[in-house]
């Protein structure tokens, strides 16, 4: 297949060209540092975007808007339960996974029982999760256990530990998407849910598992992000709403559903981070930075879009 036909090629081209700009302005060693930072932050983007991508692939209207609230609730509860104790690391992690499972199941229950579009279901439920997080901890910031912070910020050479872990997860998910029955089912449901049902695919079970997986990944992301940034905060998930969707789409996954890829997520996550960094490097004020970020997202979409 022609390389330009690969859906993820644009995100990677953008990433490389922006990095070249940054490196040519600030020099090679600064360029390497930026890359390390991009990998650190990009890892969190990718972690939530994997879940979002599977959800988006389920077909038109499928998107999870409760990711930020899920991250916040899971990390808030985990930090308070662990209370900085390293002995509680594993129980804390299990609690995070349990919260993710619950949230995913609740989201799906709303979608299926109320027959409402996922966008509205996850939007309304996210208010509930956020309220629960506020009520549970009143916005107090509890420090993460030392070991968690060390792991979340740790590096091997210039490569962040967490990035390696998420990279392995990405490869795994690549196989899940293309080679397992679950992945095949998601793609089938996204292209034609009725045909999928008549081909014997358990449509609702597939959707259920996908929403649960998305919530669990978001919860885990919250756990490590709290470790990375010294504790959970109520607004910690804020930028992840837009970012998770932007990364999925810039990465070449079809918003119409039924068509997804994993390499694009990394390309898009690095691209988004490097973009902001480059605009900072150029010394632009916040206003211009926002305008350019938005304009470039739109431009990327417009270029990769198909002409009618």
């Amino acid at each position: 297949m022609n390389l330009t036909e690969k859906p993820w090629i644009w995100a990677w081209l953008g990433t490389v060209s922006i990095w070249l700009v940054i490196a040519s302005i600030s020099g090679l060693s600064a360029g390497t540092e930026v890359l390390t930072a991009a990998a650190s932050f990009g890892t969190f983007f990718v972690l939530v975007a994997i879940g979002q991508m599977f959800v988006v692939t389920l077909g038109p209207g499928n998107v999870d808007l409760s990711i930020p609230a899920c991250m916040t609730l899971a990390s808030t509860v985990a930090m308070k339960v662990m209370n900085g104790s390293e002995a509680m690391l594993i129980p804390g992690f299990l609690i995070v996974v349990a919260i993710g499972l619950t949230i995913g199941a609740f989201n799906f229950a709303l979608i299926i029982l109320l027959r409402i579009p996922p966008i509205i279901a996850t939007l309304s439920s996210s208010f509930l999760y956020l309220s629960t997080a506020i009520w549970y901890n009143r916005g107090l910031r509890v420090k993460p256990p030392e070991a968690l912070a060390e792991f979340a910020t740790g590096k091997i050479g210039v490569v962040p530990l967490l990035a390696i872990a998420v990279l392995i997860l990405t490869v795994l998910m690549h196989f899940v998407l293309h080679r397992t029955y679950f992945g095949r089912s998601i793609l089938a449901v996204g292209q034609n849910a009725k045909a999928a049902h008549l081909a014997g695919i358990p449509v609702e079970r597939t959707r259920f598992l996908t929403y649960v997986m998305c919530a669990v990944l978001a919860a885990i992301c919250g756990y490590f992000l709290a470790g990375f940034s010294g504790g959970a905060a109520l607004n910690m998930g804020e930028e992840y709403l837009l970012m998770s969707i932007a990364v999925v789409v810039i990465g070449g996954t079809s918003v119409a559903g039924g068509f997804a890829n994993l390499p694009g997520l990394w390309g898009a996550a690095l691209f988004m981070f490097l973009l902001v960094t480059m605009l900072n490097t150029l010394g632009l004020s916040a206003g211009y930075r926002l305008i350019l970020t938005g304009a470039i997202i739109v431009a990327v979409i417009a270029i990769s879009g198909k002409k009618r």
């Binding site: 998107v63 932007a246 789409v249 918003v255 997202i297 979409i301 879009g305």
Partner: peptide, 11 residues
């Protein structure tokens, strides 16, 4: 360009 409105308006 046949674009998804969600992403364009997001940008």
């Amino acid at each position: 360009r046949n674009l998804p409105s969600i992403v364009v308006t997001l940008g």
